[in-house]
Simulated assay, not measured.
Amino acid sequence: MPGPPPKREDQRRRRNKNPDGLTTVTAAGGKRPKLPRVSPHWHPLMKDWFRSLKESGQSQFYEASDWQTARLLAEIMSQELNSGEPVKAAMLGEFNRAAASLMTTEGERRRLRVELQAPQAQEDGGKVVSIMDRYREKLSE
């Protein structure tokens, strides 16, 4: 989807429109794939990046092929970072493009219509309180 990322669902004015083009597929096997290990020879930045994927909310959607893609990205970028030469802009651009395909950025998750909720928002029933709502409450007191 080209253009700016869509707004979060709770920020949209028009909520009666059904999401277009939404397809739901049940994962094969119904269980999480075995997660690859962090390689000891990877660059420290890539180790941290790969570990952060394991802790991120979108990782629940990852299949085995997604983990292997992340593993390949970490391997290639580690070689680039460990080479002792400055990282080429083209390589960094390709890394960012491939990392975006793994939903590592908020904008990419919105484009794919995946929204991650903070744990405290779920405890409150998912209610989002805006500054204007707080202001209205103070005025009505």
Rank of each mutant, 00 (worst) to 15 (best):
E9A: 12
A118Q: 15
K138V: 10
R51W: 00
G3H: 07
T24N: 14
L116G: 00
D10A: 09
L102M: 02
R136E: 11
F61R: 03
V38M: 06
A99G: 09
G126Y: 06
H41E: 14
R113V: 00
K34S: 06
K54T: 01
R97F: 01
R8N: 15
W49L: 03
M91P: 01
R110E: 05
T26Y: 13
E115Q: 08
D10C: 07
W42V: 03
E9Y: 09
P86F: 09
R71H: 13
L22E: 12
S140E: 14
G21D: 15
P44F: 04
F61C: 00
E55M: 02
D133V: 04
Q68D: 09
M77E: 03
L92V: 04
E94W: 07
E63D: 05
D10L: 10
A74Q: 06
A74Y: 04
A90L: 08
N18Q: 08
T23V: 14
A28W: 13
V128K: 14
G57S: 05
E106Y: 02
R37E: 10
R14Y: 06
Q122F: 03
D133T: 13
P2Q: 12
L73F: 07
G126S: 04
P86C: 07
T105S: 12
R12S: 09
Q60V: 01
A98Y: 05
V38L: 06
K127H: 03
G3R: 08
T24F: 13
S39Q: 15
P5T: 10
R71V: 04
A100M: 02
Q79A: 09
R14K: 12
A70D: 04
E115T: 06
A89E: 14
M1P: 14
F95Y: 15
E55K: 10
T23A: 12
G3D: 05
R15M: 11
A100K: 12
L72E: 10
E141M: 08
E80V: 14
E115V: 00
G3N: 07
E80P: 04
T105H: 02
T23L: 08
L92G: 03
